Simulated assay, not measured.
Amino acid sequence: MEANDQTARAMENHDGVSFDEWIQLVGNRFVPLTVSTIDPDGFSGSLRTRVVDGTCVTDIAASSHSVHRLPEAISDDDPHHLKLSMQLEGTGLVMQDGRSAHLTAGDVAIYDTARPYTLEYDGPMRSLVMIFPHSMLGLSANLVHTVTAVRLRGDTGIGRVICPFMQHMAEEMHLLDGVSGARIMRSAFDLITALLSAELHDSATREPWRVTLDAVAHYIDAHLEDAALNTDSLARAHFISSRQLQYLFQEEGLTVSGYIRQRRLERCRLDLEDPALASRSIVQIGQSWGFVDPSHFSKLFKATYGRSPRDHRLAFVDADVLPA
């Protein structure tokens, strides 16, 4: 979906939708999907949608139906996003990458729009579905792909803390508007990353080097403000060589410095969009996330987001309250 389409759908509600209407609403919403049901005449569906900070959050309730992301429908031009589905009522089945997750109320599963998947609901259901760029998570793509279509339980471990938060978010979707909504979404992604990390940690089949990469990524996020954060300091902190560390990131198609820069820029972008931080100068924001050279920070930001830090900030914060 293009950015202007997302804006147009920032607040969207559809109730009592017929199956033909459901196909139109769901079948090509973000990427092409095939939707089927055994009872088209008796079908009824509803959805409520909010778009917050590049993430679409949808509360879906419907009769029995199936959703298929078919291989022939996948194009390189489609947005490559992740989807997260949390079962609120009824049961669901999520299938991708040769795995299947049977979800009951409170359970979560994640899947990737760039590869085929299937969702099956054999009775009345309600789900909270989030679609978002992978960059919103503090985990590498290869790590996430090891937990697609895995049941993340809401009644045990860390899920008992995280899933109630998301259930409340579904019930109070009107709170996802404006600046408060952006803050709630940041918290949601921190919690989702924690839930996925817990699953990765508990998985007996994961490769040992992936544990190291996960730990390094978490360490980076916790030390972004340190201007001296680099390959050598990271390697020392994790008792491996710089060459080993570089190899870990190369396996993900990344560089250490590039990953650090990406995470710092993302933090700066969020701070520039926050009216609560309007009293802080752009230089202060850049320095707080490890950018010691204001000119270099400005060039990197514009190259990444298409406009200067100041212009980006003015799109979200009233100029009258900004520092001179």
Rank of each mutant, 00 (worst) to 15 (best):
L191E: 09
A227F: 00
G92R: 02
S242M: 01
L175F: 15
R183E: 11
I38F: 03
W289K: 02
R310F: 10
L119N: 05
A170S: 15
S288W: 00
D202E: 15
H81G: 03
R263W: 12
C163H: 02
R115L: 13
Y259N: 02
L25N: 06
A101Q: 09
A204D: 14
T34W: 08
T49I: 02
H174R: 14
M130V: 12
K83Q: 13
R206D: 06
Y247C: 06
M185D: 03
R264F: 11
A114M: 05
A101M: 03
D271L: 09
D76F: 07
G181C: 12
D15G: 01
F165K: 04
D190M: 13
L200D: 09
F30Q: 09
F301R: 02
H68L: 09
G54C: 03
H65S: 00
D221F: 07
V67Q: 08
T104V: 15
Q284H: 09
S75W: 03
R160N: 01
S66G: 04
H201K: 14
S288F: 01
N4L: 11
I282Q: 02
T212I: 08
F30Y: 07
G42W: 10
A105E: 10
I23T: 10
P309T: 13
A114R: 14
S127A: 13
A222T: 04
Q24I: 12
H238C: 00
V52I: 05
I240C: 03
G106P: 04
T34R: 14
C56G: 05
P309S: 05
P71K: 00
M11L: 13
I240A: 00
L229M: 08
A227M: 00
D320C: 06
A237S: 07
G90A: 12
A10R: 02
L300V: 05
L234W: 00
L314K: 11
F239E: 15
D77C: 07
H65D: 01
L265F: 06
T55A: 13
M169L: 10
L176K: 04
D5G: 07
F19K: 11
R186E: 15
Q24D: 14
L152D: 00
R264L: 12
M136F: 11
E21S: 15
F316C: 01
Q6A: 06
D221M: 11
H80Q: 12
H174W: 06
G45T: 09
A105N: 05
